[in-house]
């Protein structure tokens, strides 16, 4: 199958893993390409497995750990805002080769991140992006009507808070440092991290408030 020739066919998306349907054209394509590259010695099956394990080990929990540290340690927060990767590496989190810019939400400013051209995302820190981050509605509208998009996520901001949208178009990746919630004063870093959601680090929502 060539990719060109498949265009006229009825499209069948890959079935979810709990279905026993037949493979899609693209699942065959992936398997063929992977097997051939392995046979040519370009990489090994083991390399593929290790890459997937590494991917699976990355999740928003890593970002939440960074946010909780920044909430607890003002000097760390300053370093995080000045040099994202350097500060994250202090916590033993390797995000190479990502160049990370951390943007801080304040009483006057709310930040949110989008990639209108594709799906740039700090995946080495937060794991793979949610589907909506890669889809047309979010990519199209986040730069033009950010407040309407935020409202769809249940995030209503007063007019006095400026909305600053970051279109992640080139070599930088962005993480939002949310505001520390009211009522979280006595909490330790682990409890604080539990308040930090993936969406709050993309900037479409606010962190949870303490129970």
């Amino acid at each position: 199958m060539s990719v060109e020739h498949s265009h006229g066919h009825d499209h069948d998306h890959a079935p979810p893993p709990d279905q026993d349907g037949p493979w899609s054209d693209y699942q065959y394509l992936e398997t063929a390409v992977r097997e051939l590259l392995i046979e040519k010695g370009i990489f090994s099956n083991d390399d593929v497995r290790r890459m997937i394990e590494r991917m699976d080990s990355r999740s928003p929990a890593r970002g939440a750990q960074v946010v909780a540290k920044a909430w607890s340690d003002p000097a760390f927060k300053d370093r995080l805002l000045a040099d994202g990767r350097g500060a994250v590496e202090e916590l033993g989190i390797d995000i190479e080769p990502v160049r990370l810019i951390v943007v801080e939400n304040t009483a006057a400013e709310h930040n949110m991140v989008v990639c209108t051209l594709c799906s740039c995302y700090p995946r080495n820190l937060l794991g793979l992006p949610p589907d909506w981050y890669k889809a047309r509605a979010y990519r199209s509208r986040a730069v033009r009507e950010p407040r309407a998009v935020l409202a769809e996520f249940g995030t209503e901001l007063p007019d006095g808070v400026a909305v600053r949208v970051h279109d992640s178009t080139a070599d930088m990746r962005y993480m939002v440092l949310p505001r520390r919630p009211d009522g979280s004063e006595g909490l330790g870093e682990a409890e604080l991290a539990d308040l930090v959601t993936r969406d709050s680090m993309i900037g479409v929502s606010l962190p949870k408030t303490p129970a």
């Binding site: 890959a14 979810p16 893993p17 699942q27 992936e30 398997t31 390409v33 992977r34 590259l37 390399d47 593929v48 890459m51 997937i52 991917m55 699976d56 989008v114 209108t116 051209l117 594709c118 793979l128 949610p130 589907d131 909506w132 889809a135 047309r136 509605a137 979010y138 990519r139 199209s140 509208r141 986040a142 730069v143 033009r144 998009v149 769809e152 996520f153 279109d167």
Partner: peptide
């Protein structure tokens, strides 16, 4: 692909778990 500012519908917030073959594509 250059879709910033285009009209579009509401954000569909449902997500799926990545299938194993999708993770393999990413690994490639």
């Amino acid at each position: 692909h250059d879709m910033g500012g285009e009209p579009a519908g509401p954000v569909d917030r449902s997500t799926h778990d990545y299938a194993f073959w999708e993770k393999r594509v990413d690994a490639l």
